[in-house]
């Protein structure tokens, strides 16, 4: 069975929710502990949301030094799937597995709300069904095929999803060359958008994020970070299941690799 690990740091809050979402996607959820250097043979890793170490220093700045992050770094370099949600995204940027940084919301207030997001054409493996892939063959090599397939897939489904955001520091920022690269290389995975999917003016994202960015991935598409919480809207508890595809797609891909 496909095994997806969920890391618990001191102060992680959404580990149970992420494990539940993994189980709902038909995979085996494996609890991983920050102080272990071992990923216990999982096929993918999720860094869930929360306030690791209380976020008393810069968000994620201490957690990135946890022993398990060395293992996660190696795992990511092998091209294997890593997703950071909210605080997990912040940890991934602190660990330099993703570019840029998350700074304080432009409104200077914590925001908990369900927002509309646009699924961009991206190289993100977590949202792109992979027909042919293996650990040795990275997404970059499959890039063309992936994007073509992705576009087809998205047309068939919906490109606007509604996910909860829940953060005080979700305002994505990076330098101009990095932004240009993210845009050019299909690394922008999610953008905040109007309810009907239309673009927001730059700077009008709920948290003020640059280019309305809510989620990005690395060049290879295997490391994915996002501020919204798909794990909270998987089972329709409050009438929304838009988060399920964030776990289903990767679980399917990993299953097809197994077979």
């Amino acid at each position: 069975m496909t095994r997806i690990g969920v890391v618990t740091f001191p102060g992680t809050l959404d580990d149970r929710d992420a494990l539940r979402a993994v189980r709902l996607a038909g995979a085996d959820g494996v609890a991983l502990w920050h102080a272990d250097a071992d990923l216990r043979g999982v096929d993918a890793v999720i860094l869930p949301g929360g306030f690791s170490y209380g976020d008393y220093l810069r968000c994620g700045a201490i957690a990135r030094f946890s022993p398990i992050m060395d293992a996660v770094g190696r795992f990511a370099q092998q091209g294997r799937p890593v997703m950071g949600i909210c605080n997990g995204f912040q940890i991934l940027t602190e660990a330099h597995l993703l570019p840029g940084a998350l700074i304080r919301n432009s409104g200077l207030k914590f925001i908990c709300a369900e927002v509309a997001l646009y699924l961009e054409d991206s190289v993100c493996q977590w949202l792109t069904p992979q027909e042919v892939t293996s650990h040795s063959r990275t997404a970059a090599e499959n890039n063309h095929q992936v994007r073509h397939h992705h576009a087809r897939q998205l047309e068939a489904t919906k490109r606007v999803v509604r996910l909860p955001i829940n953060h005080n520091e979700g305002n994505y920022i990076c330098d101009v060359p990095t932004l240009a690269k993210l845009q050019a290389q299909g690394q922008i995975v999610l953008r905040y958008c109007a309810p009907d999917g239309s673009c927001l003016a730059d700077g009008s994202a709920p948290n003020g994020a640059l280019d309305n960015i809510a989620g990005i991935c690395n060049r290879q598409g295997n490391v994915f970070g996002l501020m919204p919480h798909p794990e909270r809207v998987c089972d329709g508890i409050s009438g929304n299941t838009d988060g399920a595809s964030f776990f289903n797609t990767i679980a399917q891909t990993l299953r097809s690799i197994e077979q």
Partner: peptide, 11 residues
């Protein structure tokens, strides 16, 4: 909006 009202996913 300033309160996390969904964590633990039981709301």
């Amino acid at each position: 909006r300033q309160y996390d009202h969904q964590v633990l996913n039981n709301t």
